[in-house]
Each structure stands twice: as structure tokens, then as C-alpha cells.
Measured scan of single mutants.
Amino acid sequence: MTEYKLVVVGAGGVGKSALTIQLIQNHFVDEYDPTIEDSYRKQVVIDGETCLLDILDTAGQEEYSAMRDQYMRTGEGFLCVFAINNTKSFEDIHHYREQIKRVKDSEDVPMVLVGNKCDLPSRTVDTKQAQDLARSYGIPFIETSAKTRQGVDDAFYTLVREIRKHKEKMSKDGKKKKKKSKTKCVIM
């Protein structure tokens, strides 16, 4: 069974824990209790493949930012979460993405942009803004509501699919490099 290491990042209060708990335990946590770091595991079937999701729910508070490099190193894919009623959390996505790329030393890291709290009427981040940002990053965008469960499975499952595509691409690139290195030079 394939294991996928997913990391949920975003500013404090955007609903990272609520999304994760909704996926794992099928219930909505409405009281806000700032996370330092929590880890969850769940076995699911995605596109006919049974897999184990190892999900790291991270601290959004700035005082825990020193811990970010460590979990970013171990993560295979990242859910970059903002709240649709919090423009600052949307603007912060850029910083999370840049930090992930720096730590992973790669421009090509599996990510999904997630606009959470889409059940709320007080939207300050337009869907088109988020779609445009995701398009500019070359990553999928999904709106979710941890409260109603809308888009929750889709967000995590899409990230797994992005990781699969990335692994497939990397193995193809690896095979191309191996083929090239088999060419021999004969000096007579």
C-alpha cells in the first residue's frame, strides 16, 4: 500500500485542523484551538488504489514558523489553505509557496490551493482571484467548507493525484537520464 505524506499549511484560523478532522473523523470542530502540530493517518481508496494518507496539520501562528522547514522537508505534497473571508490569509499563500519551493529546492512541488469556509456569506476573496492565482502557479484550486464537508475529500484526493503525477514524471525523467548515460565512448 502506497503511503502519501501530505502537509496542510496556511495562516492561523483558516480551518486547516477543521478540514483535516472532517476528512479523518467526519465531524466539524467549530471551536478554535490553535494547533502546534498534529499528525493523522487514514486509509482510503483513490482511483481504485488503496493508500495510506499521513497528514500533518501544522501551526499557522507566526511564533511556530521555525518548525516549518522541518515538516516541509518531509512532506510530499501540500494543501495551501486560505479562508475566503480573510484576504490576508490569501496573500500569505505566496509566502508559504515560496518557502516550500526553497526548502524542497524545487520549482515543481505537488500543491493544491484550497479556499476554505465557502459556506460563509462574508467572502472577501473572489473565486476568480483564487483561480487566477492557482493557474499562475500551475496547481489545482478547490473551494471547501469544513463545516458542510463540501470539497473536503476532493481537496485531499486531488493532492494525492498531483503527487502521483509528480512521481510518474520524475521516474520518466530518471529513465531518460539513465538511457543517456548508457551511451559509451570508444577510443581507438
Rank of each mutant, 00 (worst) to 15 (best):
S122W: 08
G77P: 00
Q70P: 10
C80R: 00
N86E: 08
G115T: 06
N116M: 15
P110E: 01
R102L: 12
K104T: 12
G77N: 01
R68V: 04
T124W: 07
E107L: 09
D69C: 02
D119P: 03
T124Y: 09
G75Y: 07
R68C: 06
D69W: 02
P110G: 01
L79H: 01
D105G: 15
R73S: 11
V114Y: 01
S106V: 11
G75V: 09
A66W: 11
V81A: 05
L79Y: 02
C80D: 01
R68Q: 08
S89L: 02
N86V: 02
M72I: 07
G77Y: 05
E107T: 12
V125F: 09
I93V: 11
P121A: 13
N116Y: 01
K104A: 13
V112C: 03
P121D: 15
L113D: 00
V103H: 06
D108C: 07
E76T: 13
Y64W: 08
C80F: 15
Y64K: 03
D69S: 07
M111W: 04
F82W: 07
T74Y: 13
C118N: 09
M67A: 05
G115P: 06
N116R: 00
Y71R: 11
K88G: 10
A83C: 05
Q70G: 10
T74P: 05
A66G: 13
M72E: 07
M111K: 02
N86F: 01
V114S: 01
D126K: 08
R123H: 10
K88A: 13
K104G: 07
S122R: 06
N86L: 02
A83Q: 14
D126L: 07
N86R: 03
E76R: 04
P121V: 11
M67C: 05
G77L: 09
M72C: 08
R123G: 14
E63S: 06
A83N: 15
E107G: 10
D119E: 08
C80L: 14
P121S: 13
S106I: 10
V112H: 01
Y96L: 15
P110I: 02
A66K: 07
D108W: 04
T74E: 14
G77W: 02
V109K: 03
V114E: 00
L120E: 13
R97K: 14
D119G: 08
T74W: 14
G115D: 03
P121K: 11
I100S: 02
M67T: 05
R68A: 09
V109Y: 05
K117T: 12
R73Q: 12
I84A: 15
E76P: 01
L113A: 03
D69M: 02
D126H: 10
E63V: 03
I84P: 15
N116C: 15
K101M: 14
V81M: 11
R102T: 07
F78A: 01
C118P: 06
L113S: 02
M111I: 11
K101H: 05
P110T: 03
L79K: 01
T124Q: 12
S89A: 13
F82T: 15
Y71V: 10
D119S: 05
G77Q: 00
F82V: 13
L120Q: 14
S106M: 08
M67N: 07
C118L: 09
C118K: 07
M72A: 11
V114P: 00
G75H: 09
R73G: 11
N116S: 14
K104L: 09
S106N: 13
A83R: 05
Q70R: 09
F82C: 14
F82S: 14
T74C: 09
D92G: 08
I100G: 01
I84L: 14
R73F: 08
R73I: 06
S122G: 14
D69A: 05
I100F: 07
I84C: 14
V114K: 00
P121H: 10
Q70K: 10
L113C: 07
A83P: 15
K101V: 07
F78V: 05
G115N: 04
N116F: 00
F78I: 06
L79W: 00
F78N: 01
K101L: 15
T74A: 13
A66Q: 07
A66H: 13
R102C: 10
V125C: 11
V103S: 07
V112A: 02
E107K: 06
C80E: 02
Q99G: 03
V125D: 12
T74S: 12
E63K: 06
V114T: 02
I84F: 14
P110W: 01
V81Y: 00
L79R: 00
S106D: 11
V112G: 00
M67E: 05
N116G: 07
G77S: 02
R123S: 14
F82P: 00
L79N: 00
Y71K: 12
E76L: 11
E107W: 08
F82L: 09
T74D: 14
D69K: 05
A66C: 13
V112Y: 02
D119I: 01
Q70V: 05
N86M: 03
D119L: 03
I84Y: 15
V112E: 00
C80I: 12
D108H: 10
E98R: 04
C118D: 12
Y64C: 04
S65Q: 07
D105W: 04
E63G: 04
V81K: 01
Y71I: 07
G75A: 15
I84V: 14
N116P: 00
S65P: 10
